[in-house]
Simulated assay, not measured.
Amino acid sequence: MYSEIQRERADIGGLMARPEYREWNPELIKPKKLLNPVKASRSHQELHRELLMNHRRGLGVDSKPELQRVLEHRRRNQLLKKKKEELEAKRLQCPLEQELLRRQQRLNQLEKPPEKEEDHAPEFIKVRENLRRIATLTSEERAL
């Protein structure tokens, strides 16, 4: 197989050596590579040259503005600080503090249900009570 490829190349080379094939033949002419207009522009070449110089000097191109980097750094530090404080708060609570918190929560739950029962009354009962109040107020106004 390798010898077949060599033969084909030799045939092509042999054709080029013959005088009758030296004239124009569309099969033998290779098209030129088209130039990229962006890369050919002077401004692009100058920017590329500047980037290469900065790279050689060791100066990196900042992908983000300095203000944005500082703000992200602050946010990250604040989140880390907050997480650290939460972990310390959980760790530092002694059993006595934990028991006191549980007791306080139970007391709060015992105090809240009477208020919740009034809030969960059906709507028509609330409206009826409001009407009674209004009716008593109007009767008192009439008496005056």
Rank of each mutant, 00 (worst) to 15 (best):
W24V: 12
V61I: 13
D62L: 04
N36V: 03
L15T: 04
P37N: 08
K64N: 14
G14M: 08
L28T: 11
N54L: 07
E23W: 13
L35Q: 15
I12L: 14
G58W: 02
R22L: 06
L47C: 04
H55W: 10
G14S: 11
K30P: 01
R22K: 15
G58C: 06
E20Y: 07
V38H: 08
K33G: 02
K32N: 04
L52E: 15
K33V: 11
N25E: 03
L28V: 11
L51N: 03
H55A: 08
P31S: 07
K30M: 06
N36Y: 10
K30F: 09
K64S: 12
W24N: 13
I12P: 03
D62N: 03
L52T: 03
L59P: 10
H48W: 11
K32C: 05
G60I: 01
H44L: 02
H48K: 00
D11E: 12
L47R: 00
E27C: 01
H55G: 09
A40E: 14
L51K: 01
P37G: 09
P37S: 09
L59H: 09
H55Q: 12
P65G: 14
L15W: 07
E27M: 05
Q45T: 04
L34W: 12
K33I: 13
D62G: 02
P65Q: 07
H48L: 05
R49H: 11
L34R: 15
L28A: 12
G60Y: 03
H55E: 13
N54M: 06
G58A: 04
S43G: 05
G13K: 04
H55R: 10
Q45G: 00
S63A: 09
E27W: 06
P19W: 06
L51V: 00
K33P: 02
E50C: 00
H44T: 14
P31R: 13
D62A: 04
D11S: 09
M16N: 05
V38F: 09
E27T: 13
R49Q: 12
G13A: 12
A40T: 01
L35N: 14
A17K: 12
N36P: 15
L28M: 13
N36M: 10
E20T: 07
P37F: 07
D62C: 02
A17D: 00
L15K: 11
A40V: 00
V38C: 06
Y21S: 01
L35F: 13
M53N: 09
S63Q: 14
R56M: 01
V61S: 07
L51T: 00
R57I: 03
H48M: 06
R57M: 08
N36S: 15
G14D: 02
E27I: 10
A17E: 01
R42N: 14
N54Q: 09
E46V: 03
P31G: 07
K39D: 06
K39P: 05
Y21A: 02
W24G: 10
K64V: 15
K32L: 08
G58N: 03
Y21K: 07
S63K: 08
M16I: 10
